[in-house]
Computed example of a mutant assay.
Amino acid sequence: MMQAMIFAAGLGTRLKPITDHMPKAMVSVGGEPLIKHVIEKLKSAGTERFVVNVHHFATQITDYLKENNYFNTDIRISDESDKLLDTGGGIKKAQDLFDKESPILIHNVDILSNVDLKRFYEAGISNSNIDKESTTVDAVLLVSERKTKRYLLFDNSMRLVGWTNIETGEVRSPYPNLNPKVCKMYAFAGIHTISPRLFKMMDEDFPDKFGIIDFYLKACKGHIIKGYVKENLKLLDVGKLDTLKEAEDFVQTRES
């Protein structure tokens, strides 16, 4: 069963003043809320179960989903109204809402892309789609060659080994003395799949609130976390006011 989690709990501070009155999930692009665009893209890819986390103006999201009959699919709410738990903590809190036998595709509500989500999800459950090793992959991260200050670091087999800030020179890795210059460097695109096998590590080693990249950087030593490079990636972060007009054009022209 294909399942997904949509991160919709954030405060959307970069979209102020719009988000002074609504959650970013309800910000309109092309006449429809962002969350509808993401649900429909995931649904068309074959997603059968959704988990949506909520916090900022949570009832606006839950009321919208109810009014639209949950888009005739299985949508479950992970309520973070009391406390924002960050990206890792949000997944940890929602773990009981998922099927424990299937990977979970994680998708930010403010990302629009031309990624074939079905193919990407299948890469998370079939090693042959991303490498020829016989080992089990526990997470797959969508990455790109986008210019940024912060990069994830991968070895020659595209296994995650660390993170670096090229501006400050900071390196984070469970491998001592890792040299970024011998690694492949890619920017994280905010879409990933994670195996329920990793919930045990979250429960044992992490607090209620933590970032998912922090988790992956610790998990990558004992678990296989892979990078997935999408060629000709078109991805738009609709998290800022100046990208809203661009988003309007994007939803009209993006590739499926």
Rank of each mutant, 00 (worst) to 15 (best):
A58F: 07
Y228C: 08
I91C: 02
E67N: 14
K118T: 07
T136F: 08
L160I: 07
E145W: 14
F250H: 01
M158P: 06
K83C: 10
K16I: 08
L160G: 10
V51P: 04
L11H: 07
I111H: 08
D82R: 13
I91V: 12
M158L: 15
K92G: 03
K41Q: 15
L15M: 08
S157T: 06
V229P: 00
N72K: 11
G88E: 06
D205L: 11
M26E: 04
F154V: 00
D20K: 06
I125M: 13
V238Y: 08
W163E: 05
K230N: 11
Y151P: 01
H21I: 03
L153Y: 03
I194H: 11
I191L: 13
K16G: 03
I75W: 03
K24V: 03
V171W: 07
E167V: 02
S126Q: 14
H192L: 09
S44T: 05
C220D: 00
N129R: 08
I166K: 13
L42C: 13
K184L: 13
I35F: 12
I61G: 02
L97Q: 07
G239Y: 13
L11M: 06
F199L: 03
I130W: 09
E48N: 10
E122K: 09
E122V: 06
N68D: 07
K200Y: 14
A4N: 14
L84T: 05
S173D: 04
F57T: 00
G12H: 03
M201K: 14
K118H: 14
D205E: 15
L235P: 05
G10Q: 02
M26I: 01
K149W: 14
K226F: 07
A123W: 00
A58Y: 10
L65K: 11
G190D: 09
E255A: 13
D20Q: 08
N232P: 03
P176T: 05
E204N: 14
N108T: 02
S256G: 06
T62R: 12
A45Y: 12
D214C: 09
A94N: 04
F120V: 02
K100N: 10
M1V: 04
A189C: 15
D203P: 12
G190N: 06
I225E: 10
I61T: 13
A187K: 10
P180M: 15
A58G: 10
K245E: 15
A45H: 04
T136N: 05
I61Q: 01
F199G: 08
F215S: 01
A94S: 15
K66A: 15
K43N: 08
C183Q: 13
A139W: 06
K83L: 14
N177L: 12
V161G: 03
I35T: 01
Q95S: 13
D99P: 02
I125K: 15
